[in-house]
Design a protein around this nucleic acid. Structure first.
Lengths: 140, 140
DNA sequence: TTAAGTGCAAATTATTTGCAGTAAG
DNA sequence: CTTACTGCAAATAATTTGCACTTAA
C-alpha cells in the first residue's frame, strides 16, 4: 500500500475512533494530524495553512470547529501555553511540554525524563483533573 | 499607624521597588494587590471591579496597561492557564498553581509539597526560562 | 517644564456563531 | 430523506493603541 493510502487509513481510523463522520475536510485535517503516526502540535492557523499548502480547500472557521470537535471526541487535547492563541496536541496523555518563548513553537518533552516525586494534594472537595507541566525555553 | 496607612505604605513601597511613578491610579491598584501583604491572583476585569468596588476611579484600559507595566517591572508574573483571559500573580517566584476548572479561580499551591525529582534537559541551544506547573482541579 | 501616565473610543486579534447550502448515513 | 457538517460573513471577547489631556518629578 502507498504512503498516501496509509496516511488516509490512519486518518479515517482515527476519526472513527472518535465517532466522527469522515467528511472530506475532516479526513484531510486528520491525515495532516496523524497520517504519519507522529504526534503533532498545531494552532488553528498553522493547521489551516498546512491544509492550504497541501492543496486542500477548508475554511478557517471549519478548522476551528473541527479542532474543537476533535477535542470533544477525546482525540486531541488543548494545551494552554500562550494567552494569545490555542494549541492542540494529538498526544492525549498527560505529558510535559517544551515551549520556545521566542518562536512560539510547542513540542513534547520526553515523559520518561520527568519525575514528580511529590505533588500538592488537592484541596478538600476537589480532585486533580490533570497536571500541566510546561518547560519554557529561551535561546541560550 | 492605621491599617489604611499600612496598605498605602506597602503599595507605594512596592511601586518604588519597581521604579514606577506613584500615580493615583497605580497606588490604588498596588494597594489592592499587595496592601495586606498577601499574594493575589487577578485578571484585568477582576482587578477593575475590585477598584470600582472600593470607590476608585480607574479605566479598564489603564488597568490593562498598569498590569503590563507591573509585569515589565518584575513586580508581577503573568500566568497562562486559560486561553481566554490572562491572570496576573503578585508572587513572582516559580511556584505551582491550582486552577479550578469550573470557576476559573487561580490559587497558589503549596510550594513545599511539590518535588520534581528529575526534569527533562533543555534541547541543545536552549536554556530553561521557567517551569510552569498547573494542577487543574475539578469539583469532586 | 516635560516626559510619563491616563482615559476614552476605535482598532486588532483570536475565536465563535447564525444561517443557508451541501453531503453523509 | 434527515441530520450533521461546512463556509462564509458578521458577532464577540479580551486586549491594545492613537491621541488629546493631566500630572509627577
Amino acid at each position: 500500500m502507498t504512503t498516501t493510502d496509509e496516511h488516509m487509513k490512519r486518518g479515517t481510523d482515527w476519526l472513527s475512533k472518535g465517532g466522527l463522520r469522515p467528511t472530506r475536510q475532516r479526513v484531510a485535517l486528520a491525515c495532516l494530524l496523524v497520517g504519519d503516526g507522529e504526534h503533532r502540535h498545531v494552532t488553528a492557523e498553522s493547521l489551516y495553512s498546512d491544509a492550504r499548502d497541501s492543496g486542500e480547500s477548508v475554511s478557517l472557521a471549519t478548522v476551528y470547529n473541527t479542532l474543537r470537535a476533535f477535542c470533544e471526541a477525546g482525540l486531541m487535547h488543548e494545551v494552554t501555553v500562550d494567552g494569545t492563541k490555542s494549541y492542540f496536541d494529538t498526544n492525549t496523555h498527560d505529558h510535559p511540554h517544551f515551549f520556545w518563548e521566542d518562536t512560539g513553537v510547542l513540542m513534547d518533552a520526553p515523559t520518561d525524563q520527568l519525575e514528580i516525586a511529590r505533588l500538592p494534594q488537592a484541596p478538600a472537595g476537589a480532585e486533580i483533573a490533570s497536571v500541566d507541566v510546561v518547560i519554557r525555553l529561551r535561546r541560550a
